[in-house]
Design a protein around this nucleic acid. Structure first.
Lengths: 262, 262
DNA sequence: CGCAGGATTGATTGCATTCAACGACCGTGG
DNA sequence: CCACGGTCGTTGAATGCAATCAATCCTGCG
């Protein structure tokens, strides 16, 4: 990031303060953007909204008029079976767009909800579509981002379908660590504030809250995690990665600096 | 082969016989294409190959040079855990491209394999990329197709994470029926030749082959399915759909003719 | 015929669920 | 300040669904 303008400096938009700075830098991780592309993204019309935990951003069956971009806090995707069992399908960290689906599909097939309190920017879908269609780089960045998301879904299918509860949870903790890191947060082995209740962890792993509790205690007893309230850290990141059968390839991060190190 | 110049009209390619006719009609289901778009697609350079069941089309870790389009037969996506458990992640029916991921991501994150004997057309990725980038409609069609695929992955996460074995299998059978139908095959309630062994069904549902066998017998005893060798039909499609908690919304089919009927 | 892959069945085991209760923490309001 | 209620986390006991282990059967095929 911080690609200084080639022509003249136009710093009336301070990149790091701008609500879309995170979005732009995430898109740039997947696809080179020109200065004009960046400017266009930063000038997307939007309305900022502060949302409480549990607030729905999209509901299954909706025809959304706006595409939300997560500015701060965390969000998750979720579907529910006919008899009310909930499955969390994906997590989102700040800087990620929550609704690329709905730019090009009419009816939403799942729910998106805030996990914590946080801020989102709502961009009218027409404006986002326009920039995606008129600016090849942006269109391609969106496509690549979508492809990476699909890869994450595939890994979740594997995780839930074929790993036991211990590996499943370890894997989820690893993924979250890496996703946070990719956004510029701390190194994965330094731990983080896990924004999920045990019930939500259960919904993300296809387990029950009770069992999640037991498995977390097991991981703790093994010295694989240390918990202090919601804060979680990893005394032996390497071993946790092994237990979780975690290989970051599916995240398609291109950052050479940390690629494969953790 | 088949790289005839695009300048003047060329109807020597009979649409319905052409190997890419299925691909084009599937893309058109998601996005309007101009005549030129169609022609460009039909003239993509490609090499036809007849493949036996189990043949790998892409391997995890590969950097594919070609994008496979399934002309006949069936294929599936698959990942394996560190200790060798396999999870089938998706199925493909004729006319579908198997590798949009690898047009824009460098390293494949999963395996793609033939399920049955069948034919694929290998298109050099540069040619496919070119058409995707230069023809907005084609690019958009690929994006939409990718978004629908992602939606299917999400439904699989739900299916495997939160439904019991009976619903899981019923759901899979329903999905396959609809996917076949979307390609122009028979109506879902008329049954089809299921191209999967019970072991593969197990890998697709996160179960064991033995349990799949028992559940199939259970479904049969309930009168929800009738089996004759690999042929399977559905005496009570509506009830099977209920048992499988199946709602086709996630497939994002736009065909008004059958939408919601089955 | 005999072999191999797939399907079927039975017996047993075990991981995760379910049911139920209790405990810890936090914000709120009297 | 403390009592209170609610959410979340923890623990125990019993249950159950699906896995595992182990044969056997079937069928197409060389």
């Amino acid at each position: 990031m911080l690609c200084a303008p080639p022509d003249y400096a136009e710093s009336h938009v301070a990149d790091t303060d701008h609500p879309f700075a995170g979005l732009v830098s995430r898109l740039e991780a997947n696809q080179t953007l020109s200065r004009e592309d960046r400017e266009a993204l930063l000038h997307l019309p939007n309305k900022l909204r502060q949302l409480d935990p549990g607030t729905y951003i999209v509901r299954e069956g909706d025809r959304p008029r706006a595409c939300g971009v997560l500015i701060s806090g965390f969000a998750y995707r979720q579907k529910v079976t006919g008899d009310g069992a909930r499955q969390i399908i994906g997590l989102h960290v700040p800087g990620e767009a929550l609704d690329f689906q709905n730019l090009f599909l009419e009816v939403s097939d799942h729910n998106v909800q805030m996990l914590t309190r946080g801020e989102i920017a709502e961009v009218p879908i027409e404006a986002f579509q326009k920039i995606a269609l008129e600016r090849p780089n942006v269109g391609r960045a969106i496509l690549v981002t979508t492809l990476v998301e699909a890869s994450v879904f595939r890994e979740w299918v594997l995780n839930i379908g074929r790993r036991d509860s211990r590996s499943r949870l370890a894997h989820l903790l690893c993924e979250f660590a890496l996703r946070l890191e990719a956004g510029g947060a701390a190194r994965p082995d330094h731990g983080y504030e896990l924004p999920m209740t045990q019930e939500q962890l259960a919904d993300a792993t296809g387990l029950t809250p009770v069992h999640v509790n037991r498995v977390l205690k097991m991981l703790e007893a093994e010295g694989l995690i240390v918990r202090n309230r919601r804060h979680i850290s990893f005394p032996d990141w390497h071993r946790l990665r092994d237990v979780g059968d975690f290989n970051q390839r599916y995240l398609h991060v291109r950052d050479r600096a940390t690629n494969g190190v953790f």
